[in-house]
């Protein structure tokens, strides 16, 4: 018996002399943000773009160089055209987004909280959400005229549906035990809604804002291209019709910057309202 043990011990010591490290296997699947890489990527793309234009590899007519685009943008700024177009677009964007968001939040909360609103609300949203909203612009023009109201309505309608979906999804995802806790302490329905359901649904609602703001920008440009004198969409369309591709790309750059500003603002809102996370 003791001989066996000694033999086993020797064997195990022999194995130990050939020991190797346990291989680390949990690598990857953990992407991290790198702001330097993000900016670096843009710089490299713009540099390659400029290089392609300077060497004639990229046709100036098809795709103006970054320098030409910058000049066109500067021209738009100093003539005041940019502010006229951007001002008109921002008015439509903010107005339409607020209208759609307020209505969407209201309906989303009703659908999320009340049985009587749930089935009709979900059916209504499911039926109308997939419709490309720009297809309804002619109808809105008939209803509201060619002026501003039809553009506000198109943007509001487009924003409304993702807001409803995210709001009632957010309300649905609020932990039931928190609501029951509020009820068990005899909090009023208004208090439960305001102090438990609204903050609990806020992360989902805010992520819905990112989607709805992108949809709002897309619809804004589409609506302005169909019928507007001023607006970034109108600027881009006019530049395209006149083959002023530098102005066209300048308009696109403004849209991109507008998207970045909206994203930054929503990020700030996120940090302000969801700092507890």
């Amino acid at each position: 018996m003791s001989h066996d043990v000694t033999e086993r011990r020797t064997e195990s010591q022999g194995n130990a002399s050939e020991a190797s490290h346990v291989r680390f296997r949990a690598t990857g699947f953990n992407p991290k943000a790198n702001p330097i890489a993000a900016w670096g990527f843009f710089v490299v793309v713009i540099a390659l773009w400029q290089l392609g234009s300077s060497t004639g590899f990229i046709s100036e007519l098809a795709m103006p160089s970054p320098v030409a685009v910058t000049k066109a943008l500067w021209q738009l700024i100093i003539t005041g055209d940019l502010w006229r177009h951007l001002g008109a677009s921002l008015q439509r964007l903010v107005g339409g987004w607020i209208m759609g968001t307020v209505a969407g939040l209201l309906v989303g909360f009703l659908v999320g909280m009340f049985s009587w609103a749930r089935s009709p609300g979900v059916a209504f949203v499911s039926a109308l959400f997939p419709i490309p909203k720009i297809a309804l612009l002619p109808l809105f023009i008939i209803w509201f005229g060619i002026g501003e109201p039809s553009k506000f309505a198109t943007i509001a309608f487009g924003v409304f549906f993702p807001t409803v979906i995210n709001t009632f999804g957010g309300v649905d995802n609020v932990q039931r035990n928190l609501i029951r806790m509020g009820q068990s302490f005899d909090l009023s329905m208004w208090s439960v809604t305001r102090k438990i359901i609204l903050p609990g649904a806020l992360p989902t609602i805010l992520s819905g804002f990112r989607i709805s703001s992108s949809i709002a920008i897309i619809l804004l440009i589409a609506a302005e291209m169909i019928g507007a004198q001023y607006g970034i969409g109108a600027l881009i369309l006019a530049a395209g019709n006149l083959y002023q591709t530098d102005q066209l790309i300048a308009g696109v750059v403004v849209l991109s910057l507008l998207g970045l500003c909206v994203s930054w603002l929503l990020g700030r809102l996120d940090r302000w309202l969801l700092g507890w996370r």
Binding site: Q175, N177, L178, R180, M181, G182, S184, F185, D186, L187, S188, S191, K195, I196, P199, G200, L274, W276, R277
Partner: peptide, 27 residues
């Protein structure tokens, strides 16, 4: 009749004092 919950049921967006204050706010 007041509950103490198995899973605590604390609001993650409120501080300790805020969670306690919550149940006093409607009275």
């Amino acid at each position: 009749l007041t509950y103490v919950f198995q899973d605590f049921a604390l609001l993650p967006w409120r501080t300790v004092a805020g969670n306690i204050s919550l149940v006093l706010e409607d009275h």
